[in-house]
């Protein structure tokens, strides 16, 4: 392409009258490098356009987009995430309720409710209960006395033997 033709095209270009094809011709002309001095400033503009066209996103961009799109596909995952959150909150509430119930039970055990309204009857009942414990305790003591007898007998049997072994050792 001769420079006269280029100059004519450029004039059209500045006036906004060039078609896309003519602009492509200008771009091709300035890209090949061999540009007369008179057209240098236009050349730098076209070089700038060419440089801008080369700006690209990093290759990792596609993966980033497709990943977030697959995550949102139909909104299923988002709904799942919401469900998980609801489940978490529900579990937390359940733990608190269960803990509250158990603590209440423990506390109520420490303070038993009154079983009798009349203090006299209550006193009699308490006395009965204490008598029962006392009786059982007395019986247990008797039985324990027998064990004591056994122990004494065992000691008597064992002690002469122990004396014998001591004597033998001294000899």
């Amino acid at each position: 392409m001769d420079s006269k033709h280029v100059e004519a095209l450029l004039e059209k270009y500045w006036n906004g009258d060039t078609s896309l094809e003519e602009e492509a011709q200008l771009r091709a002309f300035f890209a090949q490098g061999n540009v007369p001095a008179s057209l240098q400033s236009a050349a730098s503009l076209f070089r700038y356009f060419q440089q801008e066209q080369q700006k690209k996103l990093a290759p990792s961009f596609d993966a980033r987009v497709t990943k977030s799109i697959r995550q949102r596909q139909g909104g299923k995952i988002i709904r799942m995430v919401n469900l998980v959150n609801v489940a978490r909150i529900a579990a937390g509430v359940l733990v608190i309720v269960a803990a509250g119930y158990l603590i209440r039970q423990e506390v109520s055990k420490m303070y038993p409710e009154d079983t009798y309204s009349d203090p006299k009857v209550a006193f009699e009942e308490t006395k009965k209960a204490l008598m029962m414990i006392s009786k059982s305790f007395g019986k247990a003591q008797q039985e324990a006395g027998k064990i004591k007898m056994f122990n004494e007998a065992e000691e008597k049997i064992q002690s002469p033997k122990a004396d014998d072994t001591e004597q033998k050792a001294s000899i």
Partner: peptide
Amino acid sequence: FHMFETRVLPAKNKLFR
């Protein structure tokens, strides 16, 4: 998704610029 990959995604650099 295939259509998205072939018809929309290739425009990404123009969109970016």
